[in-house]
Design a protein around this nucleic acid. Structure first.
Length: 770
RNA sequence: GCCCCUGUAGACCAACGGCAGAGUCGAUGGACUCAAAAUCCAUUCAGUGUGGGUUCGAAUCCCACCGGGGGCACCA
């Protein structure tokens, strides 16, 4: 624990005791949050779960919960705590509801930060990465995350990335991986390729030199071939937030229109233009091209033979559409022979005409670009290709995978401008798989988005060695029921994962073609309006918060702050408030548990009130629905309400031995275990239970108790409340109408004049309009 | 510039088109205490960004504007 006297005092006042490591003896038996870690861990680390590894469990009762896996940049931070508090609440809820749940964890452990850190501190990217993973794994245990640790995988393990290479070969076989020239950021001073995030305002992040562009031949995945399916299959994504779907739709950017060829006078050349508005071609005023070569000449409009000028402008992007555009001056359809037709008719007519004369064709284009996967980096998956002077580009045979990274004998930041792997001379030289002659390995590594586009398929059996994933595991768990992650991955990661899933589906390896049924976004944790990040400084330290308030209070604070997708400003929330609530629950459970062990509460005493019992059951039912809707903030508010209700009932009605109170406290502990596992476990044990609360199941609701016999009906006059009536819930419209009209206050109000209109909405509302 | 989301007490957030308040924090008062802390109880405060519209009835649906957040962008 950090030296923080005042906070620690608060923590102790609420009954928490710093008992050190789990397993240490209890000093006084009151608070034992930290000790309880061992209780909470047990079912998920040692005993195993039904249906894991893949067995005969039916898919129908299995639930697969995945949070976007972490990058091991250091210790866990506030953002991790939020994301995994959400996924853990879902996993624990589903377990209580009787599902077999696979809650997976792994690490996205390739990537540039490892290389940067290694270079700066002169150590190996591998050591830095795996040390951080251990720190994070321990952090997750401290937070009480109920992962099944047997899913654990690291994308930087050769056993994992060999399947990236396998995947690459499959895409290559199907014509979905190809080489093309593309520009990269190039720092002339460091003589190295830079990632976009290493370019700050056009300058190299490290040395400040102006970054230029350099053309390199690189590998691409042909995601554009799947553009239409990626768009169409969004119909299946009813469990996704609408705004994420909108973002993906915009990113794909489908445009339907036509290509039109404009002959350029005096050159014999034509310029091809894409337009979404072919019906406006009659009004074309000038042509705009990206390159300056043609400018100043005249183009001939193929629809009417008019001569129009050609301008050059740099706003025309050469790699979108055709690199040329047409300005129609916004002139309307009623030009030339199109007058009087609808836009759709005019469009069809123009396109037909263009196709007939051979000067154009209907076309659909997409904003989406192919996926450039080559990285001139070390800490990534080597691209499994060999360049042979005789045979050209040759794939590494599958049985020679994995192509492992060299451990030594290379430069991480070569001054020559080569990629790091190019300096691993021994590693690079390889006999050509085809002719056996001397050849060179591809010296680039893959974009880490490749790693993350299929990892969720491997979790059910991460040691599987006969393919990228175990088909039985797929049959038992996939697709992912609940996927949780930040909106910063709304486009690229999710689009790539959808793409790769479709490719694997087309390879006959997956029975589905959308990987994630339901997506929950979490917002960011910010501090006093400022976002936290490595570069800006982590304004709030997770470990410090845990030390001050305990893991449960941190989790509850995260979930209670608002809807999951909203940002949390840590300056506006109160972990101390969460501590108080958890302590209240524990006191309740302690008092009720003590009553039993003391033998207090003689039989027949404290049978409890029906009204209180009904209220408890209604709350449980409501919390169930709220959890199901992932509305944790409201669910927790209801749990707090239940806590208050039970306290009142205990103090002023039934007492400690009251059956309703006991039933309510037990239900509360079970539900609480979704969001505050340590405290719930503690309170559950205090009630005298031997088994873990996670095995207790979700509290049963008696439907008979949900019904309320009597409700308050509001009687309005001209929309203003004038009277309230206690009425039976099943009251009929006619009966309610006459009772409302007979109410004293209403009789006075109407003063003998009958209302013009009466709106009756049984059983809660009557509105009289004068 | 285009698209999406969002504006509710001092703060964070609730509210099937039907009584604006479930919950939390803060503040205030009380109980307990020699006193304080902790605990318990109670109270306070908004008419829902602004202006229109639809409706018997609008925080909720529609339109416009203003503020905040996000996505795309000289994208044809």
């Amino acid at each position: 624990m950090p030296d923080n006297g005042a906070a620690l005092a608060l923590y102790r006042r609420h009954g928490f005791v710093d008992t050190g490591e789990p397993g240490d003896p209890l000093p006084d038996g009151r608070g034992r949050e930290l000790v309880l870690a061992k209780t909470v861990r047990r079912p998920f680390e040692a005993d195993g779960l039904p249906g894991f590894p893949p067995s005969a469990q039916p898919r129908s009762n299995n639930r697969y919960v995945v949070s976007m896996f972490p990058y091991p940049s250091g210790d866990l931070h506030m953002g991790h705590a939020e994301a995994y508090s959400i996924s853990d609440a879902i996993a624990r809820y589903l377990r209580l509801k009787g599902h077999n749940v696979l809650a997976a964890i792994g690490w996205d452990s390739f990537g540039l930060p490892a290389e940067n850190a290694a270079f700066k501190r002169n150590l190996s990217p591998r050591d830095w990465t795996y040390d951080n993973i251990e720190v994070q794994a321990e952090g997750f245990r401290r937070l009480g995350m109920s992962f099944d640790w047997r899913t654990r995988l690291h994308t930087s393990d050769p056993e994992y990335y060999r399947w990236n290479q396998w995947l690459f070969l499959k895409l290559y076989e199907r014509g979905l991986a190809y080489r093309a020239t593309a520009p990269v950021n190039w720092c002339p001073n460091d003589r190295t390729v830079l990632a976009n995030e290493q370019v700050v305002q056009g300058r190299c992040e490290r040395c400040g030199a102006v970054v230029g562009q350099r053309d390199l031949t690189q590998w691409f995945f042909r995601i554009t071939r799947y553009a239409q399916r990626l768009l169409d299959d969004m119909d299946q994504l009813g469990g996704w937030p609408e705004d994420v779907l909108t973002m993906q739709r915009n990113w794909i950017g489908r445009s339907a229109g036509a290509y039109v060829d404009f002959p350029i006078e005096g050159t014999g050349q034509t310029v091809r233009v894409f337009t979404t508005r072919p019906e406006t071609l009659y009004g074309a005023t000038f042509l705009v091209v990206a390159d300056t070569e043609l400018a100043g000449r005249a183009a001939v409009n193929p629809v009417n033979g008019e001569r129009i000028p050609v301008h050059a402008a740099d706003h025309v992007v050469s790699d979108y559409g055709t690199g040329a555009s047409i300005d129609t001056g916004g002139r309307p359809v009623d030009c030339g022979p199109l007058t009087g037709r609808t836009v759709a008719q005019a469009r069809d007519a123009v396109v037909r005409d263009l196709e007939r004369t051979g000067s154009g064709t209907a076309a659909v284009i997409y904003r989406l670009r192919d996926w450039l996967i080559s990285r001139q980096r070390y800490w990534g998956t080597p691209i499994p290709m060999v360049h042979c002077p005789a045979c050209g580009v040759v794939p590494v045979p599958e049985d020679q995978l994995p192509v492992t990274l060299p451990e030594s004998g290379f430069e991480l930041r070569p001054g020559s401008g080569e990629p790091p792997l190019a300096t691993a001379r021994d590693w690079v030289s390889v006999p050509c798989p085809r002719c056996g002659g001397p050849a060179r390995r591809d010296v680039d590594t893959m974009d880490t988005f490749v790693d993350s586009s299929w990892y969720f398929l491997r979790y059910p059996d991460p040691a599987y060695d006969r393919g990228p994933f175990n088909p039985e595991g797929i049959a038992r768990w996939l697709p992912v029921d609940d996927y949780i992650g930040g909106k910063e991955h709304a486009i690229l990661h999710l689009l790539y994962a959808r793409f790769i899933t479709k490719v694997l589906h087309d390879l006959g390896m997956l029975p589905f073609d959308e990987p994630f049924r339901r997506l929950t976004n979490q917002g960011q944790v910010i501090m006093a309006g400022k976002s936290m990040s490595k570069s800006l400084g982590n304004l709030v330290d997770l470990q410090d918060q845990i030390a001050r308030f305990g893991p449960d209070a941190v989790r509850v604070t995260m979930l209670f702050a608002g809807p999951p997708e909203d940002d949390i400003d840590w300056a506006t929330v109160s972990p101390a408030g969460a501590v108080k609530w958890l302590a209240r629950v524990r006191r309740l459970a302690g008092e009720v548990g003590l009553a039993r062990s003391d033998g207090a509460g003689p039989d027949g005493a404290g049978v409890g009130s029906v009204a209180a019992r009904s209220a408890v059951h209604r709350l449980v039912d409501g919390i169930d629905r709220l959890m199901d809707q992932r509305r944790f903030n409201v669910a927790i508010a209801r749990m707090m309400e239940l806590t208050t209700l039970l306290r009142r009932e205990l103090d002023h009605a039934g007492g400690v031995a009251d059956r309703v109170v006991r039933e309510g406290v037990e239900a509360l502990c079970r539900m609480l275990s979704c969001v505050a596992p340590f405290s719930a476990e503690d309170a559950w044990a205090a009630l005298g239970n031997e088994q873990s609360v996670v095995e207790a199941g979700w509290p049963e609701v008696d439907p008979a108790l949900l019904a309320v016999a009597e409700v308050t009906c509001v009687v309005q006059v001209d929309g203003k409340v004038r009277a309230r009536l206690a009425v039976p819930v099943d009251i009929g419209a006619e009966e309610l109408r006459s009772r409302a009209l007979a109410a004293d206050r209403i009789v006075d109000e109407l003063n003998g004049r009958p209302p013009r209109r009466v709106v009756v909405r049984p059983p809660t509302l009557v509105n009289l309009i004068r």
